[in-house]
């Protein structure tokens, strides 16, 4: 990015950071909701967008994280933010375990398997598996997060926690995208056979994408649990996976700014359409359809990577 772009991004971020000062609680809470979905969609983007693995069961990993956090917090009184690494680990390991035998499946077969995993997890939670998930009631009484002695309670406070995490995620995922790992995933998505031919261990990379994406969703689950203070299986139903799927594809698979923009639209629009009362989802469905038809590549599709030879020569002096 050049200097102007940096400047633009920086000032936007700064403006966004002071937004809660001008907005009412409801508006801030909508932004929080958008932030959580942005986080989840960014994690799904790693699997679906970067590696091209059809995953329509992302809510399962999100649920694993949220439940891990809730159980650790309510049973063992571990402060909720301390559970972040455990949630990530639990969700990531779970993803590795379920993806291991199925990761070689072709696109649509993988899609139904992930849907199946999502449903199995939800049904297991509803049926109070191992007697620790609280069944359909879910888990309640999750404590508020505490950061440096400050209890995070109001939406304005959660705003900074959630969007801080989103900011960190964007930074890390942008780095990841540029890395050898990120490039390998893109290669895999574009042409699996060629990637394998070039010495990329495809199964290894696919699993890594699954594990990492799931782990991140798990951590988002922790934030969700902390914010809601009550979680129940219905918050992780098939519809949630569908929404995340729509965000990633609508934004433009693999495009981080696109995913962010789509999170704003997919979560924000139904709120905007509250004026339509009972017809709000109808309008929403129509808008989704029209947006996809108008921009089939996604709202902000990724452009191919450009390297300017001249710039490089100048830089290295050769």
């Amino acid at each position: 990015m050049n200097r102007a772009a940096w400047l633009g991004t920086g000032s936007c971020a700064a403006l966004f950071a002071v937004a809660p000062l001008f907005l009412n609680t409801y508006q801030v809470d909508v932004l929080n909701s958008i932030g959580l979905y942005a986080l989840l969609a960014l994690s799904l983007n790693l699997i679906l967008g970067e590696a091209g693995l059809f995953n329509m069961g992302h809510a399962a990993f999100y649920a694993m994280g949220a439940y891990t956090a809730a159980i650790l917090n309510t049973r063992y009184q571990i402060p909720i933010l301390w559970t972040l690494p455990f949630s990530g680990l639990a969700a990531g390991l779970f993803a590795l375990a379920v993806a291991r035998p199925v990761v070689h499946l072709r696109g649509d077969y993988l899609l139904i398997v992930t849907i199946g995993v999502g449903e199995i997890v939800r049904i297991a939670l509803v049926n109070d598996v191992f007697g620790i998930t609280g069944g359909a009631n879910g888990i309640f009484g999750i404590s508020r997060p505490r950061l440096f002695g400050w209890v995070i309670r109001r939406p304005e406070e959660f705003f900074y926690l959630i969007w801080g995490f989103v900011g960190l995620t964007i930074f890390l995922f942008l780095r990841l995208k540029q890395s050898r790992f990120g490039r390998a995933l893109n290669y895999l998505r574009e042409d699996e056979v060629a990637a394998e031919g070039s010495g990329i261990n495809t199964d290894h990379y696919k699993l890594a994408a699954f594990g990492l994406g799931a782990a991140w969703a798990g951590m988002a689950g922790t934030l969700f649990a902390a914010k809601m203070t009550i979680i129940s299986p219905e918050s992780f139903n098939f519809w949630e996976s569908v929404v995340l799927f729509m965000i990633v594809i609508l934004g433009g698979a693999g495009s981080i700014p696109g995913v962010l923009l789509a999170a704003f639209l997919v979560v924000g629009l139904p709120e905007l359409f509250r004026e339509f009362a009972g017809a709000r989802m109808l309008v929403f469905g129509l808008v989704m359809m029209v947006m996809m038809v108008i921009r089939p590549q996604g709202l902000l599709p990724t452009r191919g990577r450009h390297f300017s030879l001249a710039a490089r020569v100048k830089e290295t002096g050769r």
Binding site: C12, A19, L23, L261, L265, L300
Partner: peptide, 13 residues
């Protein structure tokens, strides 16, 4: 693209 984002945030707001 950030501009679009910003407009959108403003519009939603």
């Amino acid at each position: 693209m950030k501009k679009q984002l910003l407009t959108l945030v403003a519009a939603v707001g």
